[in-house]
Write a protein that binds this DNA or RNA. Structure first.
Lengths: 228, 228
DNA sequence: GACCGAACAAACAGGTCAGTCTGTTTTATT
DNA sequence: AATAAAACAGACTGACCTGTTTGTTCGGTC
């Protein structure tokens, strides 16, 4: 067969394809269990092309962290919470949305940040820094939202910074349990408990303070749905 | 050099040595980043001996999970909580104890269960089951403690089962943040927030209800408090 | 339209991996 | 003491893994 005669260079597109493929593989198998050959196969790229864009596997991973994982967190977590009416509501909706997604797909791959965090943070400084930066931005975004709540008289207790960390931690851990049990249940439990946690902390001293009706919480189906 | 002429077989000891060495390596580098040769070197064992006791790396890992990791969880987490006066106090003490340990050592390797959970749960059913079992026992032990609290009139709200899951999740996630930031701070935050979480939930409507004096709870100035 | 660096192709290389194989030593049994 | 099985020793194997090398094609510039 003749070598394809119409080859059009498209560096950015190829680079993107590699990053996306790698992100998917990391998500499914992790860093160490993913070989560069897997990446090449999945992305449909040759070794030359791959190493032209990413000199080493580590460089590729760092690019994935900064250009894919970070974005994923922003899109699925940070942005929805920021847009929400309150931190409490935002967090609850995000968690339930994610839990619904897991139920739909019937499997739990876990949170990409956490997956890589636990696999790579201890061994390598560069990875640690890159991942830490994502957590920090995540945490700070939520803290900011908490401060906004507070400014609106909605939330009183605790340092926003610490509240945010607790929220992120609870979610991360719930996702770990979810992955281990291959079930969305831990996430739903976490959503409920965080909701009550926020309720306890906000139901006081706010003037509107309508007695927050507790939702039936019937786990299954019947969830309104957001976002397309 | 002559081949050591006094060799005494001690299967259990050797097996134990291998498991311990492997557990340490997994804890530091994870499953995939640890080679069987690393294990052999660390444990001072030959390939023949290693494969006599553990036919495959996977079998070794399963043994580590069931015979080392599970025990570690029991010792450092479950047992202290069970022994404690209450779930709240037990959880708080364990978290602070762990945080202190991290500060002393100046580095954070993370929780062995979580490390392996996130690395292995998705890819392999056997690993998933083994790790899930540990989480379940962990969760159940705490749930039992919560029920004991309740029987003693100390705790009212929420399903013990779910409360336990939330506690485990929050801790796990806090440890993930701690690992990513290489700092014990997230754990301390988690300890504090879980303590307040328990306080909120126990200060209410218990019939023996001696008005549970709230303990100082350390560091931060105490905000006004909950009705009660 | 000649030229040159960037973008790609693909064979290759040294090293490591998990696991095997053959053989020796120890230990329990009798 | 004879024997068999268990417990070990250590060389070896083929697959795989990351990264290199050498060469070819594209695309903008003069």
């Amino acid at each position: 067969m003749e070598p394809r005669r119409t080859r059009t260079n498209n560096p950015q597109a190829l680079r993107r394809r590699v990053i996306d493929a790698t992100a998917a593989l990391f998500q499914a198998r992790g860093y160490h269990a993913t070989s560069t050959q897997d990446v090449m196969r999945e992305a449909g790229v040759t070794a030359g092309a791959l190493h032209h864009h990413f000199p080493t596997k580590k460089a590729l991973a760092l690019a994935v962290i900064e250009e894919s994982v970070a974005g994923a967190v922003d899109e699925t977590w940070v942005a929805p919470v920021v847009r929400a009416r309150s931190t409490a509501r935002g967090v609850r909706d995000v968690l339930e949305c994610i839990a619904d997604g897991l139920d739909e797909r019937g499997r739990v791959q876990g949170c990409p940040v956490n997956n890589l965090a636990l696999e790579l943070s201890f061994g390598d400084r560069d990875f640690q820094r890159a991942i830490h930066a994502i957590f920090e931005r995540w945490r700070e975004a939520i803290a900011k939202k908490v401060r906004a709540d507070r400014a609106a008289g909605r939330f009183t207790k605790g340092r926003p910074d610490a509240v945010a960390a607790f929220v992120v931690a609870s979610y991360s851990g719930a996702m770990a349990l979810a992955k281990a049990s291959q079930s969305a249940e831990p996430l739903r439990i976490c959503a409920r408990h965080l909701a009550e946690y926020f309720a306890e902390r906000s139901a006081r001293r706010t003037r509107t303070s309508r007695p927050r009706r507790r939702r039936p919480l019937g786990r299954r189906r019947r969830r309104h749905h957001v976002r397309g």
